[in-house]
């Protein structure tokens, strides 16, 4: 698991930024009267693009796949939640940036937990 503060900060920042930016953009773009499932998939697609862009922009500073993968995951999850929330649970989508950022934090934690489980020699 990454323990160097500079990279841990970069990982958190990338995930929160990707999630928050996606939440804001999805909330701004998707109308409230869309069918929930469609809004969810459109939100997820927007989130993936935003997450990849955030990953590409931050990769030169904080790492390569270590930044791009969690950031893309954060964007996708935030887009799904906000997209679905707009039509199915407007209260959740009421603070899209905050909900998106929380989704980003979840993705950061998920990645670190999975990383702790996978790291090391796996077969020989």
């Amino acid at each position: 698991m990454e323990r160097r503060p500079y990279f841990v900060f970069g990982d958190i920042f990338a995930c929160v930024l990707a999630g928050g930016a996606t939440g804001w953009l999805v909330y701004a773009l998707i109308p409230g009267d869309w069918f929930g499932l469609i809004a969810m998939f459109v939100g997820m697609s927007i989130g993936m693009v935003i997450g990849m862009l955030v990953g590409l922009i931050l990769a030169p500073f904080f790492g390569d796949l270590e930044v791009m993968l969690p950031a893309s995951y954060s964007g996708m999850l935030a887009g799904m939640i906000i997209g679905m929330g707009i039509s199915m649970a407007p209260a959740v989508a009421g603070s899209p940036v905050g909900v998106g950022a929380l989704a980003g934090l979840f993705c950061f934690a998920y990645t670190y937990i999975l990383q702790a489980r996978l790291r090391g020699v796996v077969r020989s």
Partner: peptide
């Protein structure tokens, strides 16, 4: 032969 793998980031790097 003797393939040994050491995961550095997830199972990706």
């Amino acid at each position: 032969d003797d393939v040994k793998v050491n995961n550095i980031f997830l199972d990706v790097v």
